[in-house]
Write a protein that binds this DNA or RNA. Structure first.
Length: 327
DNA sequence: ACGTTCCATAGTAGCAGGCG
DNA sequence: CGCCTGCTACTATGGAACGT
């Protein structure tokens, strides 16, 4: 029975998280530091504009270190092409250090920036280059990047102001910046979850879904760039269930209350926490609907399973087949 | 009816590009 | 360089949708 396989993932993940509990203090520290820096991060983010098609990301390390300056990643089709260092003074700097090789290889971009002014002509030149460049990476070395592209496309979709493909679903951000949520477990090999400490896997797409109040749930989505027999939806789901299990344990841990706020909620954590775990995959003949409405228990809390099968053209979502009730 | 969160729409401000 | 114009990221506001 497939439900048993899913429950095994939960039990395995919980047991790993109990055997290795270094993550508890570590993640509590993350939440404390990030919360402390949050206003600064937000103020820097609001002090400059995001230039389409470049998008701004913030990682955990940078969020923790963001006291006087904050480093954002600037990504193009999901790939980092530059770093923006925001300063209290508003004099932000742009640098391509360490990224030049791939920028040239993947995007034919030979512009090298060494901490130039964000408002200066060199930075403008750089933005302009990507603004006018058409399409993602050059095809000959695009292997491995497809998932990044789709992830970025989905985040853009879920952060749109209106007319989004998946209504009432919004990506979780930190200080109004895209934030890849880390975990201490690796679940990318669907056959076995393992504990990986600081080198754990990240949640592909982390969102809130619902219309407000107790009717809004965190949704842990695992994105795949293919939907084929060898890597079917249920394997992606197992991955999202493992990460959802971590989020459940995190929210029930010492630092849980602060994470709840960082994730975008004002109130207390509900007595019964409901988390959604979903696979996000291109629609194909392998679409699986068998786990629709399936609910898995973690003590008093639950994980509800969902699917999101989509059709995409030119980096835009054109069709959606989902169990999320808002679509 | 209230509280919460997301959505739609209109208005604002800052950038890019064109032109002299 | 400075001015104008169109475009777009962002903000503000009011409303919708849900459970309690």
């Amino acid at each position: 029975m497939i439900q048993r396989e899913f429950n095994d993932v939960i039990n395995k993940t919980r047991s790993l998280l109990n055997q290795n509990d270094e993550w508890r203090n570590r993640y509590e520290g993350y939440a404390l530091k990030i919360t402390k820096n949050l206003d600064f991060i937000k103020s820097v983010r609001e002090s400059f504009r995001q230039w389409h098609p470049l998008t701004v990301y913030l990682n955990t390390t940078s969020a923790q270190n963001a006291k006087k300056t904050v480093v954002f990643d600037l990504r193009y089709y999901g790939q980092t092409v530059a770093r923006l260092t925001g300063h209290e003074s508003g004099k932000h700097k742009l640098s391509t250090k360490g990224l030049e090789k791939n920028n040239l290889r993947d995007f034919d971009c030979d512009i090298q920036l060494n901490g130039v002014d964000w408002v200066g002509s060199e930075a403008a030149e750089f933005r302009k280059y990507f603004k006018h460049r058409k399409g993602p990476r050059k095809a000959e070395n695009n292997s491995g990047n497809e998932e990044h592209r789709l992830e970025s496309m989905w985040l853009t979709e879920l952060l749109k102001k209106g007319g989004k493909a998946l209504p009432h679903t919004k990506a979780v951000e930190i200080g109004k910046v895209r934030f890849p949520m880390p975990t201490p477990v690796s679940a990318s090999n669907h056959k076995s979850v393992k504990y990986s400490g600081v080198h754990g896997g990240g949640i592909d797409i982390f969102a809130r879904t619902g219309t407000g109040g107790v009717n809004t749930y965190l949704c842990i989505m695992e994105l795949k760039d293919e939907n084929v027999k060898s890597e079917p939806p249920k394997d992606a789901l197992k991955q999202s269930i493992a990460y959802a299990t971590f989020i459940r344990e995190l929210l029930r841990s010492e630092g849980g209350r602060q994470w709840w706020t960082l994730f975008g909620f004002n109130g207390e954590i509900p007595k019964q926490l409901i988390l959604y775990a979903a696979c996000v995959m291109p629609s194909s003949s392998c679409n699986d609907y068998s786990f629709k409405e399936m609910t898995l228990d973690i003590d008093e809390d639950v994980i509800k399973l969902h699917y999101i099968y989509f059709v995409e053209k030119d980096n835009m979502i054109t069709e959606i087949d989902t169990s999320l009730k808002w679509a």
